[in-house]
């Protein structure tokens, strides 16, 4: 479970002589067994929001809890509850998948026996046995993505955060990731997902928040929309909200 209350993040940039409000009073709740989606264009504040929740950044205002732990007060505790995957969390090219997963398993405090057992489970689950001892640098994009997925859930976290997980992946690899996310949800995990791809948002998310210029413009009940007629698709809702917001800003 993730609770965000009035989160704001302001970046100071003295060289450009100003400040940038990247996230502006964002509040939402993500429930276990559901996928909560943040849908927005590039630069909307999605990544910054997720970085705050993963404790990489400290919020300027507001507070957030992950599994009841405050992100500002207990960052290390929060990180141990989270599996975090983004396009920018890469894997060590000079290690093999096995070494990589072992390293992170130990960082998350798993005992040596538990780690080895977990590696076998993950390799079975993601079908990684054939390349488990090949250096990561020599793997294909799909294999690398599997290593990343295994790394994300090596400690079997109750909360999973995905930041644009399918960006720059080819369709086959992207499908692996989407199926993986769905499987996580089905196992009762809390899943937070940011994306700018409408289809992904529509098919994967149970709850959806549309974010633009750092603000959540609206929260959309996906199931309700899906039940309605074709005319009122997520895409239409999205663009009408964004346009209204931009008009407001330019005025």
């Amino acid at each position: 479970m993730i609770v965000a209350e009035g989160l704001s993040k302001i970046f100071h940039d003295p060289r450009r002589g100003g400040e940038l409000r990247a996230v502006d009073r964002v509040s939402f709740t993500a429930q276990p067994g559901r996928v909560f989606g943040l849908l927005g264009p590039n630069g909307a504040g999605k990544t910054t929001t997720l970085r705050i929740l993963s404790t990489a950044l400290v919020p300027t205002e507001g507070r957030a809890e992950v599994m009841g732990l405050d992100v500002a007060a207990d960052p290390v505790g929060v990180r141990s509850k989270i599996g975090f995957l983004t396009g920018t969390t890469q894997i060590y090219e000079r290690l093999t998948p096995r070494e990589m997963i072992r390293y992170f398993g130990r960082l998350y405090g798993l005992g040596d026996d538990v780690v080895e057992q977990r590696i076998e489970e993950l390799f079975d689950m993601l079908d990684m046995h054939s390349f488990g001892d090949t250096p990561n640098g020599r793997l294909s994009a799909g294999m690398k993505q599997k290593v990343s997925l295994a790394r994300t859930i090596v400690h079997d976290p109750p909360v999973l955060i995905f930041d644009e997980p399918t960006t720059s992946l080819d369709v086959l690899v992207a499908r692996t990731v989407v199926e993986f996310i769905a499987a996580c949800r089905d196992r009762g995990r809390t899943v937070l997902l940011s994306t700018h791809i409408m289809g992904e948002a529509e098919s994967l998310c149970d709850d959806l928040a549309i974010i633009h210029r750092g603000r959540i413009l609206d929260q959309v009940p996906v199931a309700e929309v899906k039940a309605r007629a074709h005319s009122d698709r997520i895409e239409d809702i999205f663009f009408s909200l964004i346009d209204a917001c931009d008009e407001d800003a330019s005025r």
Binding site: F11, H12, D13, R15, R16, G17, G18, L20, A22, G43, T47, T48, R51, A56, L57, V58, T88
Partner: peptide, 28 residues
């Protein structure tokens, strides 16, 4: 310091206000 660690990330968003600041006519 997050602005150092995420230097590629933070401030990447294009901000028109920063250009105005650069035009105050003072040296850096």
């Amino acid at each position: 310091r997050e602005e150092v660690l995420f230097r590629t990330g933070a401030g990447k968003g294009y901000d028109p206000r920063s250009l105005e600041a650069a035009r105050t006519g003072l040296p850096t």
